[in-house]
């Protein structure tokens, strides 16, 4: 019976199949039923959160390490990857994420280079030996403006976003402190990892609320939507995907808090993994802020 139990997981197929619910959510979204869409995506998130919480609870009850928590001995001796230990997976995952964001930001910015006369595409193209008639990939210079002809600095609220950037950088600092505390083994103290993680999550949530406020005011006051030229379309693509990653990061941090609280946290590597992800999100935001808002 014991062995039977080990090779069967009740939660995994439920999580896997619950992606159907997200799928139906997206389908409702595409048909314009936003309330239904958010409900369905919410159900999906609830399933994921529930299963992770259940898993953490199960691990807190057992003393021995779970099978995917231990790093195989022969791996520790590996000359190339050995030093990474348990953090290897987040690095592999981050490769994919780096490619993802490089592409979003890179594509949007190259579109801008071609479409925006002001950024000197012709000079760059001449320098690189590319065709200068601006039809690389079939694009042409329509200007980096929205439907009313406004440039980025005329539409976007830059002081607010600068403030928001500082908010996010602060959260990176608290994340570093959380990791430091975890390294020392201080998880539950007043200045321990748990409290710093909560702080980070709180600041992250502040960042998200400011961003939502910005979106609402842009859409209502400025009539600036995804239909506002390539500028509008890529703006929402970049900041939207970043926002979703921040949300994911906050959920991940809250899981860590729960893990500390329930006593399932055995060493600092989980906090470090969360930290790596969080810092990655910060770096992406700084890139975005520079390329979307400031340039």
């Amino acid at each position: 019976m014991e062995e039977e139990h080990e090779h069967v997981s009740g939660m995994a197929p439920i999580v896997g199949l619950s992606f159907a619910v997200t799928g139906f959510g997206l389908l409702e979204f595409s048909q314009g039923n936003y309330a239904m869409a958010f409900l369905l995506v919410g159900i999906f998130l609830a399933v994921v959160v529930g299963s992770v919480v259940k898993e953490i609870k199960k691990r807190s009850e057992t003393v021995e390490a779970h099978e995917d928590e231990e790093v195989p001995i022969q791996f520790k001796k590996d000359p190339i990857f050995g030093f990474m230990g348990k953090k290897l997976w987040i690095w592999i995952f981050l490769i994919s994420e780096v490619i993802f964001f490089t592409l979003i930001i890179g594509l949007s910015f190259s579109l801008r280079l071609v479409v925006d006369e002001g950024l000197g595409y012709r000079e760059i193209a001449k320098f690189c030996g590319l065709p200068t008639d601006s039809n690389l990939f079939g694009l042409y210079p329509a200007g980096w403006v929205d439907q009313e002809g406004r440039a980025p600095h005329e539409v976007l609220d830059i002081p607010l976003t600068t403030l928001n950037t500082f908010v996010l950088i602060t959260s990176s600092y608290t994340m570093v402190k959380a990791h430091e505390a975890a390294e020392k083994g201080d998880f539950l103290g007043k200045w321990g990892a748990r409290n710093y993680l909560l702080m980070t999550a709180g600041i992250g949530a502040t960042f998200l609320s400011i961003q939502v406020f910005e979106y609402v005011s842009l859409i209502i006051n400025e009539n600036f939507t995804v239909q506002s030229g390539l500028f509008g379309a890529t703006f929402y693509l970049q900041t939207g995907f970043h926002g979703m990653h921040v949300l994911g990061g906050i959920i991940m941090i809250l899981f860590m808090v729960y893990k500390i609280q329930s006593g399932a946290m055995k060493d600092s590597s989980d906090v470090e993994i969360t930290g790596l992800y969080w810092h990655f999100i910060d770096v992406v935001w700084i890139m975005l802020f520079t390329l979307v808002y400031l340039v």
Partner: peptide, 18 residues
């Protein structure tokens, strides 16, 4: 498709070739 974003539309300077 769902929000009418202009990633591939010609009058925004983009192109279906993108």
């Amino acid at each position: 498709r769902s929000l009418g974003a202009t990633y591939f539309s010609t009058n925004a300077g983009s192109s279906p070739l993108f």
